[in-house]
């Protein structure tokens, strides 16, 4: 479905992932098609087990595709050799759900950021310049570099860790950022700032943001396009306003209906205990 009309960044046709262990087979992603445009924010929304993370791992090239094809900038994605994989990985970065397991606990924060500079060919840059770059990245996510030096990531709060992740991405400047539930382990109070920083980052380095979440409210707030996933299938997609304000599918309606709101009443009468 390599669409000619839009500048596609990532797209997929008949993408399927089946986990097979002996006789048991789990169809985690079931024959889906999508087309993510460059520079947009795309949300993938679904409940637990709907296959969001599996799709993310496939897009990142971290797991094999069972069948179907991913296209990167219109060309079939080829990551069969480690060299090609590394080339692809220069254009894509990720932020994962659990900030506590996203860092190597043996690496200090300075080294986390320094590593990003080195990976972008900044090994020969003078030391002062490197520090200036790290300071800039920290300032971008409202952290103070001076307070972070010589600390380990696990000494920060969950929200700060995720912000540091964004600082990393800021230094790496990828074409695509895939954020897999980056705020689901963060309390609601720090969530807003992380979302804003992601949007700011998108504007700053002009990347495509793929935002995976189970919270349809977040998806609505952040994205241009929304894909709703249920049991490995995409049941509805379209622009955020279209999908959230005028949902067509029963599943989408239910998802929206189930979220507590503040302007409209939250309808609890529909709850069926025997679901």
């Amino acid at each position: 479905m390599a669409d000619e009309t839009c500048e596609t960044c990532l797209s997929g046709t008949n993408l399927t992932k089946i986990y097979a262990f002996g006789k048991s087979r789990t169809v985690a992603v079931d024959n889906i098609n999508f087309c993510f445009n460059a520079g947009q924010v795309i949300s993938i929304v679904g409940e637990s087990g709907s296959g969001k993370t599996t799709l993310a791992k496939m897009l990142l090239g971290l797991t094999n595709v069972t069948s179907g094809q991913i296209y990167f900038r219109g060309k079939p994605l080829d990551i069969s050799t480690s060299k090609k994989r590394k080339e692809y990985w220069k254009s894509i970065q990720a932020i994962f759900q659990d900030p506590y397991s996203s860092y190597n606990i043996f690496t200090k924060i300075d080294d986390v950021l320094l590593d990003c500079i080195h990976l972008r060919g900044g090994r020969k840059v003078p030391k002062e310049e490197k520090i200036a770059m790290m300071e800039e990245a920290c300032r971008f996510v409202n952290l103070k570099f001076a307070e972070l030096t010589n600390k380990y990531p696990f000494e920060l709060s969950g929200g700060q860790m995720q912000r540091l992740m964004i600082a990393r991405v800021f230094l790496l400047k990828p074409k695509i950022l895939l954020a897999d539930e980056p705020t689901s382990m963060i309390d609601a109070c720090s969530r807003a700032s992380i979302l804003e920083m992601l949007l700011k980052l998108r504007d700053e380095i002009n990347m495509t943001l793929i935002f995976i979440t189970h919270d349809i409210g977040l998806a609505y707030f952040i994205s241009d396009e929304v894909y709703i996933m249920e049991h490995g299938k995409i049941v509805e997609s379209g622009s955020a306003d279209e999908v959230i304000l005028n949902p067509k599918e029963a599943y989408t309606k239910r998802l929206i209906n189930d979220v507590p709101k503040i302007y409209e009443p939250w309808d609890l009468s529909t709850v069926d205990y025997h679901l």
């Binding site: 969530r191 998806a219 503040i262």
Partner: peptide
């Protein structure tokens, strides 16, 4: 001010 809900 940080409340996010799926409402217009």
């Amino acid at each position: 001010g940080s409340i996010i809900v799926p409402e217009a």
